[in-house]
Nucleic acid binder design. Structure first.
Length: 421
RNA sequence: GGAGAGGUGGCCGAGUGGUUGAAGGCGCCGGUCUCGAAAACCGGUAUACCGCUUGCGGUAUCCAGGGUUCGAAUCCCUGCCUCUCCGCCA
């Protein structure tokens, strides 16, 4: 959610930002119109309330003196009715304003390149070399089936498509990756959280899954809860509706969770094997920072997400997302993509974003700069990392001609074995 | 799941229809005193919105949402949460 004052005072800037994201800036003007009406209502209703309060005190004084206050009371009855009507109108007007405001995307940071499609994203960094092997590489779904380390058919039987079982060394490798990523994060100063996997509506609203993206989440209707699509949701909401002491910042959290995504509407494309599943493991990094530091923190976060990839020896590159491919909430975003040798294509394994105050304003997370007036913090997050595609890349890159897989060295202490197969 | 108790400011805690944004205490900030500190004393100490704008005025907020009333922290209804007992359970 954007700052209403920003929209009021820098309307053109906001319009331009919305346009860059490829959305219609008409809603910006709608906000201004609704806000003006809202303020007129506030002035009218508060004037009446002020009078009501004064008169109520007069009534109290008259009664204590034993005077008859009936005439005044009769008069106030109609004022009270009028207040009620106005309050209802104000409330619905504020609801309308809020919903329009919630539908306006965050505006891109000045360093974000303008663009019209994903083709305008810029590759700004890469690490490693394209792996070369002297035999035809198998895609990971062939490897994992032959090695019997991930079982899709039985997952489908037990739950449905996209809910695989990890089996034996597959399970162990998954757990090794989780622990490796968590240990890396801890070494970089992130405090580990194990959050709830179900969240309520307010939390889903806070990080922006609601109201728009409800159909991407599994819901437990009976209790009005949602299975988390990412640890970002519970972790970022940790401090919702709080004013943090200044010395708490920056807050650095890491969390491992399973993530649940319905992936409605994405069938038939890039869904083979581990490319896209409904339940997957992820280690997430979240930062709450002072506004003036959020862009340095974004670079730190990116570094912290990249580091484990380097230690795993995976070839990857970093994309700076252009304005059109930025998504609704971020002001700036990097995607990290790892090379899939078996599929000969890039797989997104991390998104690193600065949301500035956009999320924090919705969530009402503030701090006191210099002990003064509360100010909204900036929030950032990044995956470090999404497990299935890492698993896919590792299996493919470290495969042998015989169809075995060599476990990367950094994982040996975690797996307790060095070869699968 | 059943029965009961309760949710008041950063914290503790008073307040059961009328200047109560809310006594008192603690904490915190400033001052007096002191060589300095402690103690003591004095003063200050919420958030959001609206309006005029160095500052001031108004409105709202005593878990949340409704209701009764001229007037609600206080009365009524619903929800959420916490605690105690019983049941169930990893």
């Amino acid at each position: 959610m954007l700052d209403l004052k920003l929209i009021r005072e820098h309307t053109d800037l906001v319009r331009e930002g919305v346009r860059k994201k490829g959305e219609d800036p008409a809603s910006v003007d709608e906000v201004l119109r609704l806000d003006e009406h809202r303020r007129a209502l506030i002035q009218e209703t508060e004037g009446l309330k002020s009078r009501k309060n004064t008169v109520s005190q007069t009534v109290a004084r008259m009664k204590s003196k034993g005077e008859d206050a009936q005439a005044v009371i009769d008069e106030m009855r109609s004022v009270a009715d009028r207040i009620k009507v106005l309050d209802e109108e104000l409330k619905s007007e504020e609801g309308r304003l809020r919903s329009v405001l919630l539908a306006i995307p965050n505006i891109p940071h000045e360093s974000v390149p303008a663009g019209k499609s994903p083709a305008d994203n810029q590759v700004i960094a890469s690490w490693g070399e394209p792996p070369v092997i002297d035999f035809p590489p198998k895609p990971h779904w062939e490897l994992l089936e032959k090695l019997r380390i991930i079982d899709f058919p039985r997952g489908t039987k037990v739950t449905g498509a996209g809910f695989p079982f990890f089996v034996g060394k597959g399970a162990r490798l998954e757990r090794a990756l989780i622990n490796f990523f968590l240990d890396e994060a801890a070494a970089n100063g992130y405090m580990e959280l194990i959050p709830p996997l179900l969240v309520n509506e307010a939390s889903a609203m806070g990080t922006g899954q609601l109201p728009d993206k409800e159909d991407q989440m599994y819901s437990v209707d009976r209790d009005r809860l949602f299975l988390i699509p990412t640890a970002e949701v519970p972790v970022t909401n940790f401090y919702r509706d709080e004013i943090l002491p200044e010395n708490l910042l920056p807050v650095n959290f890491c969390a491992f969770t399973p993530c649940f995504r319905r992936e409605a509407g994405s069938y038939g494309k890039d869904v083979r094997g581990l490319n896209r599943v409904h339940q997957f493991d992820k280690v997430e990094l979240v930062k709450l920072v002072r506004p003036e530091h959020s862009y340095e923190e974004l670079e730190t976060l990116r570094r912290d997400a990249e580091q484990p990839l380097q230690k795993l020896g995976l070839y990857y590159h970093v994309l700076l997302m252009c304005s059109a491919d930025l998504g609704f909430t971020p002001a700036k975003k990097y995607d990290i993509e790892v090379w899939s040798l078996g599929q000969q294509k890039w797989l997104e394994v991390s998104s690193v974003s600065n949301f500035e105050a956009f999320q924090a304003r919705r969530m009402n997370i503030r701090y006191r700069p210099g002990g003064g007036k509360p100010e909204v913090v900036h929030t950032l997050n990044g995956s470090a990392l999404a497990l299935p595609r890492i698993m896919a890349a590792v299996l493919e890159q470290y495969q042998t001609p015989e169809g075995k897989v060599i476990v990367p060295k950094v994982l040996h202490p975690y797996t307790g074995f060095e070869v699968i197969g």
